[in-house]
Structure formats: C-alpha cells, structure tokens
C-alpha cells in the first residue's frame, strides 16, 4: 500500500455561532470568531488516499482525475463563498476547522476510484490544522 497526497486551496468567509446560545455565551466561547459579519481564511486542503500501485500505469490514482474530483466536490463549492451562508452542510454545523475536515471527507468518500480515502487535512492557517481519518 502507498499513500498519495494532493493539495488544493480555497478562500472562504465564516464565523462561529451557536443559535442555541445567547449572544454573550457565543462571545465567551468563540471570542472574535463570533463576529457575525464574518472573517476569512486561505484554507489549504490536503487529501491523502491509500492504494496499490497499478503495475501498468505506475499510479495509485490518476492525479489529474484526483485534482478534478477535489475541484468538483470541494473547491467549486467552497472557494470564494461564505461557508455559513452558502454551503449547505454549515447551515447547522459550525464551520470550524474540525467540521470542515469532516465535511470534506463526507463529500469525497466513495468518489475516488481505485483508492481508499485515508486522511483529510485542512489548514485554516499555517499554524492551525485539523485531520479527519473517517473515525466515527
């Protein structure tokens, strides 16, 4: 088995807010991330897939194909969008780095031919990232 990682980038706006809480509670837990006017990040996505090397092509997956899948399933939906307001999975779930990694996993699961999704890593900033391995 070999692991292969492909990167993609998207730039999006978001804010953190739990509707079940008071404004004060939101401020206390989420700090400046609770500003409802939103703020934004340059996100970097790293998708790692696991598979066997095809003896003929020498590939685990066709990188061009993987790039197209990431573009179609994730980047075209998230890039230059407001995650809370324009991306359906964040109508309820708060678009934290953890939840973005889980949502991207769910978008990609079963869509990559000949390889198994191994890890989704999302960098919100160079000093902060979340990993999801499909563990429920």
């Amino acid at each position: 088995m070999i692991l292969l990682t492909r990167k993609a980038e998207f730039s999006s706006a978001h804010f953190y807010w739990n509707d079940a809480w008071s404004e004060e509670e939101n401020r206390r837990v989420f700090g400046k991330c609770a500003n409802r006017n939103g703020h934004g990040h340059n996100y970097t996505l790293e998708v790692t897939v696991a598979g066997e090397v095809d003896p003929v092509s020498g590939f685990v997956v066709d990188l061009k194909q993987l790039k197209d899948i990431l573009e179609r399933e994730v980047v075209s939906v998230y890039d230059h969008r407001h995650l809370n307001l324009e991306v359906p999975e964040f109508a309820k779930a708060i678009p934290t780095t953890e939840n973005i990694a889980i949502a991207i996993w769910q978008r990609l699961e079963g869509k990559i031919p000949n390889a198994k999704l191994h890890r989704v890593r999302v960098y919100e900033m160079p000093d902060l990232f979340a990993d999801f391995y499909g563990e429920r």
């Binding site: 953890e98 902060l128 990232f129 979340a130 990993d131 391995y133 563990e135």
Partner: peptide
C-alpha cells in the same frame, strides 16, 4: 466523530 487538531507554536 473523532478529529485531530494540530497547533504550532
């Protein structure tokens, strides 16, 4: 859902 959070200092 179990996730991993990494922070750099």
């Amino acid at each position: 859902m179990k996730a991993y959070l990494s922070r750099r200092y």
